[in-house]
C-alpha cells in the first residue's frame, strides 16, 4: 500500500500541489482525477519518485520511498507512462523482458524462468501473439497492453498508470481498464491510475482523489467523490448523476449558463 502525506510541488512560482495526502489499499484501484493542470500527473510522478516532494513523505508498504534503493523501489512499484512512442528498436518480447531488470544483477542474463514470467504477463494482457513483433510497429492499444505486460513482468506489488486510455478508442479504453481492474483484484495489487474521463473512473476505480486548484478537493470512495455537488465547483460544468444497470454514469451540461461560465466571467458580469 502507498501512503502519502503533505506532498507539494511547484513549477517555478506556480504552486501545483500543496499538502496532498492520500492512501491506497491492496486489491483496489485508486483514481486520480481533476481538471487540466490540477497536477494529476505531477502527483503520480511524486508517488513513484520521478519527482521528489520538498515536503512530506511517500511510504511504500511502510518504508519511505526516498530510503529505497532504485532497484528495491522498482520491485515494489511498476509504472506505465506515456513516453517515447515508437522510438524503441526492441521487439515486444524484449520490451517485456526489461521488466525483469530489477530482479537480475547488472551482468545477469534473463533465465528461462524470466521468459516464463514475461510470457505469462503477455498472455494475461492478450498480447502473446505479438511477442516477436517490433514494439514500434504496434497500434496504440497493443502498445498499451504490452507496457502493462512489462509492468506485470516486474512482479511489483504496486501498479501506477498515467492516463493508460490516452489515444485509445472507446473499446480499447474499456478493455485496458477492465484488464487493470481484473488484474488488481486477481493479484491483490495496489493500483493508482490517472484518468481524464470521469465515466471511466466511475466504472473502474474503487476510490478517487479529486484534485482541484492547489490540492485535494475531495477524496473517498468513487460513489462519494462523483457527486455533482463535489464535481461542479471543481470542473465548473453542470453535472447530473444517473444510475443505469446498477452502474453510475455522469452527464454533463455545459449549456447551463449558471455553471458553464468560468467563475471569473460570472463575477465580471454580475
Amino acid at each position: 500500500m502507498i501512503v502519502a502525506d503533505d506532498l507539494s510541488w511547484s513549477y517555478g512560482e506556480q504552486q501545483v500541489l500543496s499538502a496532498v495526502a492520500l492512501a491506497t489499499r491492496p486489491g483496489r484501484v485508486l483514481g486520480l482525477i481533476g481538471p487540466n493542470g490540477s497536477g494529476k500527473t505531477t502527483l503520480l510522478r511524486l508517488l513513484y519518485g520521478a519527482l521528489s516532494s520538498p515536503s512530506g513523505v511517500v511510504l511504500v508498504d511502510g518504508d519511505p520511498l526516498r530510503s529505497l534503493r532504485p532497484r528495491e523501489a522498482a520491485r515494489r512499484l511498476a509504472v506505465v507512462v506515456q513516453e517515447a512512442p515508437g522510438e524503441s528498436p526492441l521487439t515486444v518480447a524484449e520490451m517485456v523482458l526489461l521488466g525483469r531488470t530489477p530482479h537480475l544483477s547488472t551482468f545477469q542474463r534473463a533465465s528461462a524462468e524470466d521468459h516464463d514470467v514475461a510470457a505469462d504477463a503477455l498472455r494475461r494482457v492478450g498480447a502473446l501473439h505479438l511477442a516477436d513483433r517490433a514494439f514500434a510497429g504496434l497500434s496504440g492499444g497493443e502498445r498499451q497492453r504490452v507496457l502493462i505486460a512489462r509492468a506485470l513482468t516486474q512482479r511489483a506489488t504496486h501498479l501506477l498508470l498515467d492516463e493508460p486510455t490516452n489515444h485509445l478508442d472507446i473499446r480499447y479504453q474499456h478493455e485496458v481498464l477492465g484488464l487493470l481492474a481484473h488484474l488488481v483484484r486477481d493479484l491483490g495489487t495496489t493500483s493508482v491510475v490517472v484518468l481524464h474521463d470521469l465515466n471511466l473512473a466511475a466504472r473502474y476505480c474503487d476510490d478517487l482523489v479529486l484534485l482541484g486548484p492547489g490540492g485535494v478537493a475531495a477524496s473517498g470512495t468513487t460513489a462519494d467523490v462523483l457527486d455533482p455537488d463535489v464535481l461542479e465547483p471543481v470542473y465548473e460544468i453542470g453535472v447530473r448523476r444517473v444510475e443505469h444497470d446498477g452502474q453510475l454514469h455522469l452527464l454533463f451540461s455545459p449549456s447551463d449558463p449558471s455553471v458553464a461560465r468560468p467563475r471569473a466571467i460570472q463575477e465580471a458580469l454580475s
Binding site: 532504485p70 522498482a74 507512462v81 517515447a84 526492441l90 516486474q154
Partner: peptide, 16 residues
C-alpha cells in the same frame, strides 16, 4: 536497453 526506452521506463526497471 532500459535507458533507451525512456527515463520513466528506466526508473521502473530499477535504475537511477
Amino acid at each position: 536497453d532500459a535507458l533507451g526506452s525512456g527515463d520513466d521506463s528506466a526508473r521502473s526497471a530499477g535504475l537511477h
